[in-house]
Amino acid sequence: MRDLPVIDAHHHFWDPVRNDYPWLDPRRPMIPFRYGDYGAMRGRPFLPEDYDALTGHHRVVASVTMEGEWNPADPTGESRWMAGLAARTGRPAAHVAQAWLDRADVEAVLAAQAALPLVKGVRHKPRAAPSPAQVERGAPGSMGDPRWRAGYARLAAHGLHFELQTPWWHLDEALDLVAAHPETPLVLNHTGLPSDRSEEGLAGWRAAMRRLATAPQVWVKISGLGLPGRPWRLEDNRAIIRETIEIFGAGRCLFASNFPVDGLCGSFETIFDGFRAAVEDLPWAEQLALFHDNAIRLYRLGLPAAG
């Protein structure tokens, strides 16, 4: 197999033994989780040496960490901890930080996050409806909330992009948001969460993704494709991977592991072997873009492109 460098565009490092991650604290109640029982992750650190033990034959040359829902009373605490980890180990190469866009302290938080060279963007999971039929436009905490949008409007001044995790039935709200703020790149996490694999569900996901892709500043991470109660299989995910690339183009898609979370569904090797098999017929330059070069551009990593 041809050598392919990988920049993992979305994973976590955390240490819930020493740091405060409420959802990973085994002394606290579990939260509803899209993969079901996540007890195997609770109370267990996931650090560079743990990550390295899982990557197998894949040549991961750099990676980007995502905020892991550190205690929101201290939104910059994880970023400072991550900067210290990078100083000691050389990883991660970039970090996406926590910021609550509808909080009164959003300006101070964004300024503090942007002051850390490791931080390239922020994530705030907006309020989401449990189904397409229950979407309430403008609901408090949603992307249509005026306070939320006011926080989003501050991102460009701090040189930060936004990472969005939301079900596909909220992507029209995201399209409204990026139309109002075209200067701010938006990165859709986890392929728009196509968890409903029925014909109707996939048709809704596909149409929403096509509408969002009309905004040129939107990127998408192909990740988070696990299904509850079953192992990660290429036959479940190949069509979604290829449709996402067809919709957004190879220049705006990135592959990512979402580890250790997606470790609940499959091994790192299984998932990245699946990604590689899904695109093995694409031109080599496009494969390099998906696995490596696009992450350099989006996260401004200062590394040489491979393609």
Rank of each mutant, 00 (worst) to 15 (best):
L160C: 09
L164E: 03
M143K: 00
P146R: 05
A129M: 12
P167V: 08
V135M: 04
E163L: 05
F162S: 00
R137P: 12
P140Y: 10
E136N: 05
R149Q: 15
V135R: 04
R147V: 07
G159R: 02
E136W: 13
W168F: 13
A133F: 02
L160M: 02
Y152N: 00
Y152M: 06
G159F: 09
G144Q: 03
P167E: 05
W168T: 01
S131Q: 00
L164R: 06
L164M: 12
G159Q: 02
P132Q: 02
A153F: 00
G159M: 06
S131Y: 00
G141T: 03
W169Y: 12
V135K: 01
S131R: 00
H158V: 03
L160Q: 09
W168L: 02
P130K: 12
S142H: 05
W148D: 12
T166D: 11
L160P: 02
F162M: 06
R147G: 01
G144V: 09
P140R: 15
W148P: 06
L164D: 03
E136L: 09
G138W: 10
R149V: 05
P130L: 12
D145I: 06
R149W: 04
G138S: 15
P140S: 11
G144M: 02
P132L: 01
E163S: 13
G141M: 03
S131F: 00
E136V: 11
M143R: 06
A133E: 15
A156D: 08
R147A: 13
L160F: 06
R137S: 14
P167H: 12
R154T: 09
L164A: 01
H161Y: 12
A157T: 11
G138L: 07
G159P: 08
L160H: 04
P140T: 13
A153M: 13
P130M: 11
S131V: 01
S142P: 13
Q165E: 15
Q134P: 09
L155S: 08
S142Q: 02
R149F: 10
A139E: 13
R137F: 12
P146W: 14
Q134N: 14
G138M: 11
A133C: 12
L155A: 10
A156P: 06
V135N: 02
L155P: 09
D145V: 11
E136A: 14
R149M: 13
W148Q: 03
R147P: 01
A153Q: 11
A150N: 10
